[in-house]
Structure formats: structure tokens, C-alpha cells
Amino acid sequence: MSKIEQRLAELNITLPTPAAPVANYVGFIRSGNQVIISGQLCLNAGKLSHTGKVGASVSKEEAKEAARYCAINVLAQLKAAAGSLDNVAQCIRLGGFINSDPAFADLAYVMNGASDLMVEVFGDQGKHARSTVGVAELPLDAAVEVEALFEIKA
């Protein structure tokens, strides 16, 4: 078992099969030593875990959990791209999109669900730059979507 797979097991995380794209795009692109992961929704066991507006029908705690599910799906795509998560040199950037009620402002708290997981899994190599934005709507009414950029070891 690889070091990162062992860490995932300690966290009680089993990576799912990478989600298939729902439109005309791919789940990831590998360019040189970089992997760009398309936005991943909050799927758990193949179904959306949280739908609706954060700050209205979805609490910030539920949305943080949704962001964690998004990050797990990012890792599934990353493993498919890199062959092994032990080949990851650095999480460079995460981008978070929160399907938020216009009055909801605690977007950073929600996105910490994804950011915290990257650090839990990769340690210092999981620390990253980040953008988080509130949006009016997401595909399938998902509460959260996360995209990512990683560096792979040469």
C-alpha cells in the first residue's frame, strides 16, 4: 500500500471511481508535470450529497462536508491522472464554487472542507493557493464544486 493510500485508509476514505463528465469535457488534463482537474461536485457513493443554496436550505456545516466530498472526487481524478497519489509533488491551487444564498458570506469556512483534506492527505505538499466564489447556481443544483491544479513528480 502506498504512503498516501495508507493515509487515506487512516482517514477512512475510499476513493470512488472518477466521475464521468456530464458534458463535452474531460475529468482532467495532464500537461507536462501539471494536472488540471475539472470541477468536481459533491458526490458520495455516486449521488449528490448536498443540493440547494448554502445559507438557505444547506447549512454552512453541511456545505463544508460537501466541499470535502468534492475534494475526495478531485483525488479520484488525480489518481487516475498520476497513476499513484504518491506521485504528487504539490497541490498548487484549489478553486471553490459555492451555490450560495445572496446573504451568505462565510464562503471561506465552506471551502476549508476541501483545503483541510488536502493538507490532511499530503501534509505540507497539500498547502495551496485558493479562490472561493459564491455563485447563483451550480450544475444539478449541487451545493459546492471544486476544481484543482497539481504538480506531479518528474
Rank of each mutant, 00 (worst) to 15 (best):
V54Y: 11
T14I: 09
Q90P: 15
F104A: 12
R130L: 03
L107V: 03
I29A: 03
I92W: 12
S115N: 12
E120H: 02
Q125C: 09
A148D: 10
S100T: 02
I152C: 06
S100M: 12
N33S: 03
K127G: 04
E120Q: 09
P139G: 07
G123L: 07
V54E: 06
C70S: 07
I29K: 09
V135H: 13
G27C: 02
I4V: 06
I37G: 13
L8D: 02
L11G: 01
R30L: 00
K153S: 06
A67W: 05
E147S: 15
Q34K: 04
V35A: 08
M1A: 00
G83V: 15
A129L: 04
L11C: 05
V133L: 13
G123T: 08
G113E: 11
V121W: 05
Q6K: 09
V119L: 10
A67Y: 07
S100A: 15
P139L: 10
K60R: 14
E62Y: 09
S57H: 13
F104V: 12
F28E: 01
K53I: 06
N112A: 02
G55E: 11
G27F: 01
F150I: 08
A148H: 01
I13G: 09
A66E: 05
V144A: 06
T132N: 01
G134N: 05
D86F: 12
R30Q: 05
T17G: 11
M118N: 02
M111R: 08
L48H: 06
V119F: 09
L43Q: 08
P102W: 10
V110K: 08
D106F: 06
G113C: 07
G46K: 12
K153G: 08
I92S: 15
V135Y: 13
L48T: 07
I29P: 01
S84W: 13
G46W: 05
V58G: 09
C42Q: 03
L11N: 00
A23C: 12
H128A: 01
L11K: 04
R7C: 01
V26L: 04
G55I: 12
Y25W: 05
V74T: 14
S84E: 15
D124C: 10
K79I: 14
D101T: 02
P16M: 10
N87K: 15
P139A: 09
E151G: 04
G27Q: 02
E62M: 13
F122D: 05
N24L: 02
Q77M: 14
N99T: 05
S31M: 00
S131I: 08
L94I: 14
V35Q: 03
V74E: 11
D124G: 08
S115A: 05
M118I: 01
L75N: 13
Y25R: 03
L117G: 02
D86V: 12
V135A: 07
F104D: 11
V110Q: 09
R7H: 00
C70E: 12
N87G: 14
L85W: 11
V88C: 13
L117C: 03
S31L: 03
A9I: 00
A76C: 09
K153Q: 11
E61F: 11
R68K: 15
R7G: 02
E151F: 03
A129Q: 00
E151D: 07
N112D: 05
Q40R: 12
G113H: 07
G46R: 11
V119A: 11
S38P: 04
G52Q: 11
I4Y: 04
L48F: 11
N33I: 00
L140A: 09
S131D: 03
G83S: 15
A56Q: 14
